Amino acid sequence: MQLSKTQLIGLKADDFRHPLDLEATTTLKQLPGLDIIVRSLLGSVAEQFFYLNNIASSVLVSEKQLPHLHKLLVEAARVLDLEPPQLYLQQNPVPNAYTFAMQGKQPFMVLHTSLVEMLTPEEIQGVMAHELGHLKCEHGVYLTLANIMVLGASLLPTWGTAIAQSLQSQMLQWVRCAEFSCDRAALLVAQDPKVIMSILMKLAGGSPTIAPQLNLEAFIQQARDYEDISNTALGEMLKQAQTEQLTHPVPVLRAKEIDRWASSQDYHHLIEIGKTEYNQKATTKGGWRNW
């Protein structure tokens, strides 16, 4: 595993934010007072609720508790020029990870044990970097609202109104776009697109026993085949119908987006800037901390 990766000093969210994320976020911000309402009504209560739940039923990762995971988190956060949040490991058979930050006071990340068991250390760090991308892009408020609306849609018939359905559709569209930005954050940390695409492959069809047998090149070809479906109007319509109720883009599409961005000038420019600033700091006495 690559160690002591270059810190992207001064990295801003808009340096890597996906255009679809930027467009969808701009649209949401045009809804007056939405972020204020969510913060004021849910912020402090939600943060406290999740904190108590995590501290009571998960393992808090630290230098003294699962230090190898703690080291991966600290390194990923430094690459993205962030303070690392609290990290919890939670027993759960469904591979998943999520992050929460409403008011910036108690940001945290949760990894499920089944996810950790299925991935390599590099891939675990890639997942951490993806979740850190939510913090870097300040997705917390809208991400919380999207999760609540998805839950409400399944439990409360009042979400059946035309206005609520329209807002729910808009929120789901936003959260799918936000995932593309976070995948880019993961690539900035991994600095190898195959690591991120391997994560997506394993999430699509992996398990602790099957994961080592999966063929990444075949999965990448699968992603290209999926993209080719858009060559016909019917194929594009079916793809849109498939994804409009999902909270995440389908894994093959995310893999194709990462493959594309890894070849872009924007990505290589960010990495080169980071290396240049790293070298400048390294040659300045007292100006660099080893980590």
Rank of each mutant, 00 (worst) to 15 (best):
K202L: 05
E272N: 13
P157F: 04
V59D: 09
G206T: 04
L8V: 04
I36C: 10
T232Q: 01
L203D: 09
P19Y: 03
I229W: 07
A162T: 13
T209S: 15
T284A: 10
I199E: 09
H70E: 14
I55Y: 11
A153H: 14
A233H: 10
A233S: 11
S57T: 14
E122K: 10
W174E: 01
L119Q: 06
L238M: 15
P19D: 13
A76M: 01
K105T: 13
Q240E: 14
L188S: 02
R254Y: 01
M109F: 06
K71G: 09
V127T: 02
E63Q: 14
V79M: 01
H68D: 15
E63D: 14
K12T: 12
N147D: 13
Q280M: 10
C177N: 04
T247C: 03
A233T: 10
A282N: 10
L216Q: 02
L203N: 03
I229T: 13
A262C: 05
M109S: 02
Q7F: 02
T26S: 15
A146K: 08
S230G: 04
A77C: 00
S154I: 02
H134Q: 03
V195S: 07
G140P: 01
S230C: 05
Q222E: 14
H18P: 00
L8K: 06
N279F: 11
